[in-house]
Computed example of a mutant assay.
Amino acid sequence: MGFLTIPGLGKVHYHEYGSGDKPMLAFHGYGMTGKQFHVLKKSILTKYHVYGIDHFFHGESELESTWTEKEILEGMPREMVKAYLEEWFKIYGRQRVSLMAYSIGANLALILLEEYPDLIEEIILMAPDGLSVYKGFEFLMHKPMGKFFFRRATKSKWLAPSLLKNLKRVRFIDDSLYTIAYNEIDTEKKRQDVYYTLNIIRQLKPDTNRIAALINQHHIKCTLIFGRDDKLFPISAAKPFIAKLDDPQVHEVQLGHWLVVQALDEYLLNLPQ
């Protein structure tokens, strides 16, 4: 493990694991850390040496103390995402790398692919955000009423739990996702971290048309994995992007949004070679 020190941003912590020799930068989902992909030990980790990045407000990554709440809510610009890889290159040398991401982590991986297509060997995305506009996040991050509501929910002891219960009742989220989400909002500190996490990545909007063209142009191996019961980022929302790719590897597995589990490792291990 180590840190990428990015001027003007902070210290980005990463975990190292995997027995393979191919370098892969990995970006986890909300409430996890860069260790999230440890579970893929039979499939991914036998081929790759993973550098699992902790998002800010997760794990040991820390923003510079000079960052104000106003700056957090404005979000970090994509130039700072480029700095992740530039700082990694300073340690390990400029070379071709692969990318892996789950859920909101896909936004960072997609931007790195967009900025460094000639250096990306492969990208693996699991239940990815960023391939289409997710109306829930768009409302909370960019619409005045949504931003007001999100801030109120951060401060309230009852509003966020009540919202989750209603989302579960109408089957927008399943039991496992409800349990995970509830455990991330049961204190004011945790609710604030949700608020800051989603806001600091609000500017990170991948250009999916350009990304699809770059994947085709540079023959980047692209694997997309979706949960059949995922209500957050289902395969249906990604189909316009998938249709633009020449040769994507697309999988829909018998899981929900909570996708990075041992069952996925077994699924990937048993795919025809």
Rank of each mutant, 00 (worst) to 15 (best):
P23G: 07
G105T: 05
H15E: 11
F172C: 01
K165R: 13
L271Y: 09
A127D: 08
Y30K: 08
L259F: 02
F89C: 06
S61N: 08
I200A: 08
A243G: 15
Y92H: 15
L25R: 07
E87D: 12
L268Y: 00
G256Q: 00
E86D: 09
E115F: 06
K239Q: 10
H28Y: 06
P234L: 01
A237H: 03
E266C: 00
F241R: 01
A83R: 13
E74V: 03
F172H: 14
E252S: 07
L140Q: 12
K82S: 15
W67D: 09
N209D: 14
S156M: 03
W67Y: 09
F139R: 07
N166Y: 05
L108D: 03
I173C: 03
L4D: 08
N216H: 01
L140N: 13
E16L: 07
D229C: 01
F27H: 10
L164Y: 04
V133W: 08
L119M: 11
A213E: 14
L268Q: 02
N270H: 15
I180G: 01
I200H: 15
A83Y: 11
W88H: 06
H55V: 01
F57W: 12
L167W: 01
S43W: 05
R191M: 09
T179M: 05
L40A: 06
D193T: 10
E16Q: 14
A153T: 10
T66F: 02
C222G: 05
F150H: 14
E62M: 14
I6N: 04
N107C: 09
P23N: 09
E266G: 00
E16H: 03
K189I: 11
Q192D: 06
D174Y: 04
P77M: 10
L214M: 13
H13D: 09
